[in-house]
Design a protein around this nucleic acid. Sequence first.
DNA 1: TCGTAACTAGACGGTCGGTCTAAATGAAGG
DNA 2: CCTTCATTTAGACCGACCGTCTAGTTACGA
Lengths: 212, 212
Amino acid sequence: MDVEQQAPRRRGRPPRQRENLIETRELLLRAGLEVLTEKGFSATGIEEVLGRVGVPKGSFYHYFSSKEAFGLDLIERYGVFFARKLDRHLGNSSLAPLDRLRSFVADATDGMVRYEFRRGCLIGNLGQEMGALPESFRDRLKETFEDWQVRLAACLREAQKAGEIAPDADTEQLAAVFWIGWEGAVLRAKLERSAKPLEVFAGFFFVGLAAG
Amino acid sequence: MDVEQQAPRRRGRPPRQRENLIETRELLLRAGLEVLTEKGFSATGIEEVLGRVGVPKGSFYHYFSSKEAFGLDLIERYGVFFARKLDRHLGNSSLAPLDRLRSFVADATDGMVRYEFRRGCLIGNLGQEMGALPESFRDRLKETFEDWQVRLAACLREAQKAGEIAPDADTEQLAAVFWIGWEGAVLRAKLERSAKPLEVFAGFFFVGLAAG
DNA sequence: TCGTAACTAGACGGTCGGTCTAAATGAAGG
DNA sequence: CCTTCATTTAGACCGACCGTCTAGTTACGA
């Protein structure tokens, strides 16, 4: 799924008939996502992103006012992309609530395997880097985590109704634990180049769920 | 505990009588630890490290063959420092085994509070950055985690003997879960500038331990 | 006192992020 | 059709900074 290099670009305003052509801005965002999930923000130069898709620097600063703005856009984008994936799984009412979470775990694990554990989670990456990032990133990253947490908590409440977990369990807190641990597992999986950490954490989480 | 700036340095080989004086190399490592736990490896320039302690660039490359070598030294150093801290807690036989782990958690939490959540775990930081780091770091980081895991597993076995956790629990795996989740919690605590993630994860972990 | 090892000063080349100007092209209006 | 203007690309350029390296300074041992 690598972003393919576009053919050499013609100068000037491009013809409107380009419905099949991927827009430059879109191209930059996709490539940015790829690179930043691998290397993070500080370690990535704009030029590397540009090089991947054969877009010159002038275009970048036409579409984005700065690297910081580009990063914020990527966070937004990744948050939406991920929330959609999450909903696809957690909202799948043909499965029992906890099986929906299991299916998300399987999907995410598969995603890491597919890229040979080179790519992690953009939000986790940037969170870790926060010490070196523009302060504007912090709230966005926090909000993104909270958003995911809300979606998971809803699923856990359903699990509660279905009797899969204890009725007095704090679903909000359990959802928080999941994302805390999951990010740790992704980090570790990237380091070890192995799906083991993901399995180990998920396994423990499901056991712990039962214990409330 | 910030590394204080040394007095302006004289040129040339320093007099041997410097027992009270902190050695330059030592100074650089301490400052490096401070900065890298905050900002990671890629985002940190050696000039920032040098500036903190008033050491000129030439000295750096006298003591370390490269930034990479410096980083490897820091990993080694941090690993030892942390293992010692771990042993102090987990080997404290005046406490029940699980209380020893609790005391480590409290100590580590306190450490993060003290630095206002600006500093995280060096190993976790670099692990996340691995995509942009020299490949030589990978094994060191993995080994460090494994080392911590072994130490914790020993403590958990004691807990098992003391009947604090189920006799058939897989202590190796539980130790792995702890470090996976703990790193995630540290990441999140840094992002949120709050001890809550640490508490939330630790709380869940201890409950899950009981459930085996 | 001289030679060498230990250490420092800072120049150097290279890269990066961001800006800026020029050029190319399509769209809209007459 | 032809002019004008908005849109987008090309890439030179600048200042900042990074990691490396060489020349130089100083202490120590013989």
